[in-house]
Design a protein around this nucleic acid. Structure first.
Length: 294
DNA sequence: TTTATTGT
């Protein structure tokens, strides 16, 4: 008896091969369209893009319960977090969960990576907003380390906390629905400067690059959408008026290189170009509200 | 605890 090792015995029959291919393609198409639907639900008018894509700007979109994160393997940190909020009235939220490592980042960012650094683990998509809007699963996901960036305590616990509280306590009840995009701004990289390289190599918490400042964009979806944006630096006292940090969305795009809400009609976008705070946000009323913690 | 770390 001889052993038949000819290819025809090993390879599937042409018909089987074709069927497998068709199923594989159908699977990919289905997965892609499902993933698109998830992403669109969490980001009104399109997922954040780069103005000029390059190897350095490579971003992976991590989908979570309640929010999306654009993860940069180059910075070892998120470049943006995006979520939509719906006013749900008074909701009791569960206890504050523990921080959790996220294996998808590939880089080892553990829950103790920030220890002794002098920086807080600052949420991009906030615990409270995620808990109210998306329930327990979203709240738990908001504690993934991929949703954290190094923030100075006075920024995280005071100025930034006040901004997050205003979004939930004033903007959301008033407008009913919001699109929020938030993330870091890094010092511009000058390729010819030794200082720039030194900072890139050393100004880190573990592997994570330390941002210079943070932005938050808040939009009321609609045909003539309102928009407001802030950029807040690391070094603040915490009790400054929020309105001191008002910027236009265009300014945030210039400083990040990102293109937010890429599907917006050009007319709407150009209306936002130079204006900080399109429409009335009643900032004078909320700008000086105190921090919850001191 | 609508933010967190430190230290016990």
């Amino acid at each position: 008896m001889s052993l038949d090792l000819s290819l025809s015995r090993i390879l599937p029959r042409p018909r089987t091969l074709l069927l497998s291919l068709v199923l594989a393609v159908a699977g990919v198409v289905l997965w892609h369209s499902t993933e698109q639907q998830y992403r669109e639900r969490l980001s009104w008018m399109g997922v954040t893009e780069w103005q000029q894509p390059s190897a350095q700007t490579f971003t992976r979109v991590l989908r979570n319960d309640g929010y999306l994160v654009g993860w940069s393997d180059f910075r070892v940190g998120a470049l943006w977090a995006s979520y939509t909020l719906q006013d749900r009235g008074d909701v009791n939220i569960g206890p504050r969960p523990d921080f959790d490592a996220d294996w998808r980042t590939l880089w080892p960012v553990s829950t103790s990576s920030y220890s002794g650094s002098g920086y807080d683990r600052g949420h991009l998509a906030p615990n409270y907003a995620m808990a109210v809007n998306g329930g327990e699963a979203a709240q738990q996901d908001s504690f993934l380390m991929s949703n954290m960036l190094p923030q100075r305590p006075k920024l995280n616990r005071q100025l930034w906390q006040r901004l997050e509280a205003v979004v939930m306590d004033h903007f959301l009840p008033r407008f009913g629905r919001l699109q929020v995009i938030t993330g870091p701004i890094y010092a511009p990289m000058e390729w010819a400067s030794v200082e720039s390289w030194t900072r890139l190599a050393l100004d880190r918490v573990g592997f994570i690059e330390i941002p210079q400042s943070f932005y938050k964009i808040v939009v009321v979806p609609g045909e003539t959408p309102r928009a407001v944006a802030f950029i807040m630096p690391q070094d603040v006292q915490g009790d400054e008026p929020l309105s001191d940090y008002l910027v236009s969305i265009d300014e945030v795009e210039r400083r990040t290189g990102l293109n937010f809400m890429p599907s917006l009609p050009p007319a709407v976008e150009s209306a936002w170009e130079a204006t900080a705070g399109v429409g009335d946000w009643n900032l004078s009323k909320v700008s000086q509200l105190p921090a919850r913690f001191n």
